[in-house]
Design a protein around this nucleic acid. Structure first.
Lengths: 359, 359
DNA sequence: TCGCTTTACTCAAACGGTTCAGGCACAATA
DNA sequence: TATTGTGCCTGAACCGTTTGAGTAAAGCGA
């Protein structure tokens, strides 16, 4: 009671019915564009609804329609890496724009660990809080898929396709893009390429690593892959490892924008000039890749559009008109100044230092 | 019908009542820990509920309790800048963690323009979709406040305090932090300082600008302020403007991490050495500030904690036990390598170039 | 034994929509 | 004229939960 804001009683269809001198049922028909009313009455009801600025009570509607008019997204990455990875914010923006068109809300929850994610799905579905969910960051032997199927909770996996689950997925061909990148580096003349990968338990990261190794071997390039946990710290470490090698790679492909930018910094700090001594490619583009010097060559995807497509597929799934996986446009290479032909340094152990930074 | 997932009928309190041989009312009392039941019956009911893995149907509960058990957050910045600013993701993480403890969902919507934001509030409140909202990025003469008050929608403004509205706000003392930063730069020996501000319509940005100007004048420093729209492009432009001056500032304070990193890049590209020729401070910290070279001196705030406090205040407001504004810990200066005493260059028009980049 | 309180429940009405089976008036048809 | 529609609308049940009113039985003091 202590001085909370006054809550005006909100308008219901009964108010409209009373005012229009008809029954609740008639009002419902009018508001939902269903047949069985004369145009005159329909128009009058709609006008009154508008005049009273009526909005349907979602709880009431959900209760009888058994729909929540909301979709869910659980993010299970540590808050620290979530924030610096622009992927998710862009993805959410895309999902949102698709859902908003259908007046469907997006409910978000952040959790610490994968098991917590499953608990959220159970609760959400049990409470009828969501009609469906998007599963991101599919993992190897991911326990979420079986649980979601068991619950009967409509879901779309972002990334895939999945071999061990019948859940629909939206994905794009990572392998083709990887081949494009490796071929590009080979064409520039690179013979020793490396990849700083993300978590090897993530399907997409693993798929890229496999494709990378294969593509490099096909082109007879020497290849090294170092795994990270997507944190800048681990990316810096990986870069140091790679560049400390007696024969360091002349091109490094990073699995995210953050890793790429971090790697660039470390390389420059170690006295390597980019792109002269080492070329750098980052996987997802982000404005941060464009403002560093040199700007990074990246693999660019339209992430908001990806999110939008995922949401559209989920809505189809919820309405029971789902039909298999969706293949999305693959990422394409956007060359910038961080990649160039390697400067030959036959036999030399020490990198050329064009812009040495004092200790 | 076309092959959508099968939906198992979900458990209701009637099922529990039947199984326990009691009425629905009794079940409700047991599940809500209300008096009027013997311990034995209560225990039995709870066991059955657990066994059937029952979850309360939120729609039904909302309908009778007139609560939505959800809070809303509308983000009205362009998707592009939203994604690169880590502030919001961190903020959301904090909000989320507080709400999750009360099993309250967070509903997010992105809109293009401020008017759309108001429409969303109207709809959300009309539909009983949320119990309250957090208003971010308060502006000068912000139309949202009056509308939210008119609706009676519980809200907490993030940033403030507000002069022209009775809405509760959570804020921290920008002026004190600004003074700390300016004093620090003055103590290092800087005599010409500049600020690359965000949108001047944002209250927090304006507050910082005012405090900045005053603090610099108090210390007899020459001061320049350039406004941006928070995009990297506008930050780059502002930096170029400032550094093209015959007597360029020897220290620039940027209003965001993105602006700061962009500014650093531009400065270095223009042949200015950081921190020798120009010191750089960025307003919010982010890992990206730490991985560039040199790492940026920043104003650090605990943003997740800020979000958490905002959510807690909002919950209080919703329950009608609100009590004025909340003052949060102000940001503190975290000095890193991007700030140092300026290198004197008496009369020289050209900056010293310690690490000139070609062209 | 009676009256009174307490305990432990039941019952039914909300909450705000949707939906379906009528019903009434009027027109068309046989 | 009787029958059959048809258009337009009403009334009531229903979705799953909360909640206040009602009640039967038990407990208790006198």
């Amino acid at each position: 009671m202590a001085g909370g804001p006054k809550r005006a009683r909100r308008v219901t269809i009964s108010d409209i019915a009373e005012r229009a001198g008809v029954s609740k049922g008639a009002v419902s028909y009018a508001l939902n564009d269903r047949p069985g009313l004369s145009d005159k009455t329909r128009k009058r009801i709609l006008e009154i609804a508008d005049e009273l600025s009526w909005y349907p009570n979602r709880a009431a509607r959900s209760l009888s329609a058994a729909r929540a008019d909301a979709c869910g997204l659980v993010l299970a990455r540590p808050a620290k890496t979530l924030a610096i990875e622009t992927f998710f914010m862009e993805f959410i923006a895309g999902v949102e724009s698709a859902l908003a068109r259908h007046s469907i809300a997006l409910t978000i929850q952040l959790v610490d660990e994968p098991q917590g994610e499953i608990d959220v799905y159970r609760r959400w579905w049990g409470e009828h809080r969501v009609d469906g969910v998007l599963l991101v960051d599919p993992r190897v032997a991911d326990p979420r898929f079986a649980e979601v199927e068991r619950l009967g909770l409509p879901a779309v996996v972002v990334g895939g396709p999945l071999k061990d689950s019948k859940l629909p997925a939206i994905w794009h061909d990572e392998a083709l893009t990887v081949v494009e990148v490796v071929r590009y580096l080979a064409a520039l003349g690179h013979e020793r390429v490396a990849r700083v990968a993300g978590l090897d338990t993530f399907l997409h990261s693993r798929a890229r690593s496999n494709a990378f190794r294969r593509a490099a071997r096909d082109l007879a390039l020497s290849v090294r892959i170092v795994a990270t946990d997507f944190t800048p710290e681990s990316g810096a470490l990986a870069t140091r490892q790679l560049l400390s090698d007696p024969k360091p790679p002349t091109a490094i492909v990073y699995d995210s924008a953050v890793l790429g930018v971090t790697g660039l910094g470390v390389a420059q700090q170690m006295g390597f000039s980019v792109p002269e001594d080492v070329s750098i490619v980052a996987w997802d583009d982000s404005l941060i890749c464009q403002v560093v010097h040199p700007p990074l060559t990246t693999v660019t995807r339209d992430i908001p559009a990806y999110g939008e497509a995922a949401a559209i597929r989920l809505l189809a799934e919820i309405e029971g008109r789902g039909k298999g996986d969706v293949e999305f446009n693959r990422g394409v290479l956007t060359p910038r100044a961080s990649t160039a032909p390697p400067v030959a340094m036959p036999g030399s152990r020490r990198p050329r230092r064009t812009a040495a930074r004092a200790r």
